[in-house]
Simulated scan of single mutants.
Amino acid sequence: MDVLSVIGVIVGFAALLGGNFLEGGTLHSLANGPAAIIVIGGTVGAAMLQTPHSSLKRALSLFRWIFHPPRSQFQVGIDQVVKWAVSARRDGLLGLENISESEPDKFSRKGLQLLVDGSEPDVIRHVLETDLIIMEQRDHDAVQFYESMGGYAPTIGIIGAVMGLIHVMRHLAEPSELGAGIAVAFVATIYGVAFANLFLLPVANKLKACIKDQSQYRELIIEGIIAIADGENPKAIEMKLSGYLH
C-alpha cells in the first residue's frame, strides 16, 4: 500500500476539519446530505456523460493504483534484459523462444517473440513503440475521467449553493432562520471545491505519475530488446540501460 497517499488524504481533510473547528465551527455545520447528493451525483453524472464506456471502465480499474500503485522495478528489468542478452549470445535468438513463452509480461513477451521471429530492429522498435503509445494514450484517456470531475465539482458546488439560497429566499419573512440557511447553502460550495482539490485532481495527477513510470519501464524494455537484436555485448547493454535507474 502507498502510505503517502493514505497520509495525504488524511492530512488534507484533517486540515479542513481542523480549521473549521478552530474557527468555532462544528462537524455538524459541515454535514449536509442534500449538498452532498448534488455535488457528488452531479459531478459523477457530468463526467460519465463525456466519458466513453471503455475509458470509464479503465478509469475504475486504475483507481486501485492510488493506494496500490504498480511498482516498475527498473533494476529488475535491467537484470532481466541482460539475462536475455546472455542467453541470445550463448544460444542464438532462437534460444529465447522458451523464455518468451514463460514471460508473464505481455509487452516483454511480444518483444521477445519478435526477436525469435528474426524481425529487423527497426520493425521491432516500430511495433513496440506503437503498442507503448496506444497503451499510454488509453490510460491517459481514462485519467481524464478524474480530471473532468475535478473541473466540474466546484461548479456543481456553486449550483448547489444557489439552489440553497433560492430555498433561503423563500423564508425572508423569518430573519432568525436566514443566517443558518445561508451557511447551509454554502456548504455545497465547500463540498465541490474540497472534493476537487483535496481528492479528484490529486488522484488524476497520481495516476499520471504511475502511467509515466510504467511507460519509462517499457521504454527500457524496448531499448534492451533492440540492443539484443543489434548483437550488443550484455555488459554494454547493462551500462546503456543503467541511465533509467532513478
Rank of each mutant, 00 (worst) to 15 (best):
S5T: 15
V6F: 11
I7L: 04
V9D: 06
L22N: 14
L22E: 09
T26N: 07
A31R: 12
G41Y: 09
G45P: 05
P52N: 10
H53A: 15
H53G: 13
L62R: 01
F63C: 02
P70I: 00
R71G: 01
S72Y: 14
S72I: 15
G77Y: 14
G77N: 10
Q80G: 02
Q80K: 09
V81S: 07
A85M: 11
G95Y: 04
E103C: 15
K106P: 06
F107H: 05
G118F: 01
I124D: 01
R125H: 14
V127S: 13
M135D: 12
M135A: 14
H140W: 13
S148M: 12
P154S: 11
P154R: 11
V162C: 11
V162P: 08
M169D: 12
L172G: 13
E174L: 08
P175A: 10
A180P: 05
A183E: 04
V184K: 10
I190F: 09
G192T: 02
V193N: 04
F199V: 04
F199A: 00
V203L: 04
K208E: 10
K208W: 00
C210V: 12
K212V: 08
I221D: 04
I225V: 13
A227Q: 07
A229C: 05
G231L: 06
E232G: 06
A236K: 06
M239F: 10
K240M: 13
L241R: 04
L241H: 08
S242A: 12
